[in-house]
Amino acid sequence: MVTVRLFGMTKMLAGNQGTLSLALHDGKRVKDLVAVIEAAYPKIGELLQKKKVLVSVNQDIAHEDLEVRDGDEIALLPPFAGGSDGC
């Protein structure tokens, strides 16, 4: 099982859950994790496909071929909106 942290709109799309616990059966790469999320949460899957939501592993944006290891800190990052826009 891997734990995935959710923020902003991804948290909202997952019914306001702060984390997801997911079992990876078919492969342990980021793209395999994305496939599991797509199946369970199609709306988040759509944003992942469009690269509007990015996957981070250990606080860095992860490539889809990166292998996920036990204990890795994984998160789904919706588009950033720091500061006050337009300022």
């Binding site: 902003g8 709109m9 919706p78 950033f80 909106a81 500061g83 826009d85």
Partner: peptide, 24 residues
């Protein structure tokens, strides 16, 4: 900061709450 920092903004409006996506 606006490009790379994982900070998200939820605006509270009379029509409801909106997660802001753009960072012009």
């Amino acid at each position: 900061l606006k490009q790379i920092t994982p900070i998200w903004k939820l605006e509270h409006t009379p029509d409801g709450e909106v997660w802001v996506e753009e960072h012009p």
